[in-house]
Computed example of a mutant assay.
Amino acid sequence: MKIAVFAGDGIGPEVTREAVRVLEALALPGLELIEGDVGGAAYKRHGHPLPQATLDIARECDAILFGAVGDPDCDNLERSLRPEQAILGLRKAMGFFANLRPARVFAGLEDFSALRPEVAGAIDLLIVRELNGDVYFGEKGIRKLEDGRRQGWDMMSYAEDEVRRIAHVGFKAAQGRAKPGEKGKLCSVDKANVLETSQLWRDVMIEVSADYPDVELSHMYVDNAAMQLVRNPGQFDVIVTGNLFGDILSDQASMCVGSIGLLASASLSEGTSGLYEPIHGSAPDIAGKGLANPMATILSAAMLLRHSLGFEAQAARIEAAVAKTLADGIRGGDLGGSFGTAAIGDAVLERL
């Protein structure tokens, strides 16, 4: 089993280091960690944010543990050389099409949400976002009209097979999260009352649902879904949606939870390969100071064990250790605490 470790920029190396310590503590037989350069760090060393050597490592490994990319020193580079191109390039080259972003409120942290504690405390959901289609990848441009005015345009489209494969990911996730003896719950979010793209999306979701009689499928327009995430987020279990809507709703869900420093994510291919990363950025303002909260990266490592390597029990152990650490009052500055990066890592290891 090989895991590529791409720490990246800013706080990336600091938080990734703690996740690696947790993985090593599990002493999994045959586990090998291989490091590679990405982002601004890679540009400074190799002249490109995603060097061929790094891409070769990614293809050789079973999964990728990713830190963060983003470096103010690279802000003036042309777009193709910006640090962020590393993550986009990996998604494209590795065929990562399904983004999984769980959001839950850990016990004792309800007051950190912008929502009322009793509302926030009910949040335990998973957003499944399609990554390779939609308006982000359609034809686009800016043209000049006959009267001299400029007009921007973007093509939104989905092919049936693109919807079908993300639908299967969503239904399987709902099956896996279902409580014993109960049906899974999957809410498909679209804008089928306005967009033909969304009508196709809804039609295909209904067709695929026939393969999953143990999952209850519901539909919701995206504007209502955004409202319901604030009004009653506890009603959701798994949400599956397109690239644009998923981008917006997953960020909204993260703020409902209360701290971006606790949120992990996975980007999966059609096989078992995946890229796992915290949703926060490189935070250059605190880089090198030992202040960053590593829990999101540690939880990303748990997702890696679950989805790419099949170690469910070990993933659950890590998640339980993080929850116990938080319940014991060991928190970083993002949660009003005074514990630094390494101290939080030590605490998680003790409870593991």
Results as ranks from 00 to 15, higher is better:
Leu275Thr: 07
Arg317Leu: 14
Gly95Val: 11
Gly337Arg: 00
Pro284Ala: 13
Ala225Pro: 09
Leu291Ile: 15
Ala167Leu: 08
Gly274Ile: 03
Lys2Ala: 03
Gly288Ala: 10
Ala58Thr: 07
Asp111Met: 13
Ser80Asp: 15
Gly310Phe: 03
Glu32Asn: 05
Leu291Asp: 01
Thr16Met: 09
Ala178Cys: 12
Asp75Lys: 15
Gly95Tyr: 09
Phe66Tyr: 12
Val38Met: 07
Ser113Pro: 00
Ile286Asp: 10
Val15His: 04
Ala225Asp: 06
Arg317Trp: 10
Pro117Trp: 08
Gly176Met: 09
Ala226His: 03
Asp328Gly: 14
Leu88Val: 12
Gln252Met: 13
Asp237Ile: 00
Tyr136Phe: 15
Glu207Phe: 03
Gly340Thr: 08
Glu110Arg: 13
Ile330Tyr: 12
Ala120Cys: 06
Lys140Gly: 04
Ser198Gln: 00
Ile330Met: 06
Val348Ile: 12
Ala343Glu: 15
Ala347Phe: 09
Glu35Ile: 01
Leu217Gln: 03
Gly274Ala: 02
Glu312Phe: 05
Lys185Asp: 01
Glu182Cys: 07
Glu146Thr: 13
Ala27Thr: 02
Ala120Gln: 05
Arg143Asp: 15
Val208Glu: 08
Glu130Ala: 05
Gln235Phe: 09
Asp328Thr: 06
Phe96Val: 05
Phe171Val: 02
Met1Asp: 02
Pro102Asp: 00
Pro213Gly: 09
Pro117Arg: 10
Leu115Gly: 04
Met295Arg: 09
Ile3Thr: 00
Arg21Ile: 00
Arg45Gly: 04
Ala264Ser: 14
Ala7Tyr: 03
Leu28Phe: 14
Val128Phe: 01
Ala266Gln: 08
Leu352Cys: 12
Tyr212Ala: 07
Gly234Phe: 11
Leu88Ser: 08
Ala321Ile: 09
Ala25Val: 01
Phe97Lys: 04
Leu263Phe: 03
Leu31His: 01
Pro49Met: 11
Asp247Tyr: 07
Gly108Trp: 04
Ser254Tyr: 01
Ala283His: 07
Glu270Gly: 15
Asp285Ile: 14
Lys179Ala: 15
Lys2Glu: 13
Cys74Met: 14
Leu299Arg: 09
Leu305Ala: 02
Gly30Arg: 14
Lys289Val: 00
Pro102Met: 04
Tyr221Cys: 12
Ala86Met: 10
Ile142Pro: 06
Ala321Met: 08
Met255Tyr: 15
Gly30Asp: 12
Leu125Ser: 02
Arg116His: 08
Ala225Cys: 15
Asp237Glu: 14
Tyr212Arg: 06
His307Thr: 00
Ser259Gln: 10
Ala167Val: 04
Lys191Asn: 08
Ala4Phe: 08
Ser300Ala: 11
Glu60Asp: 15
Tyr221Met: 12
Ser157Asp: 12
His307Tyr: 14
Asp75Ala: 15
Val128Met: 02
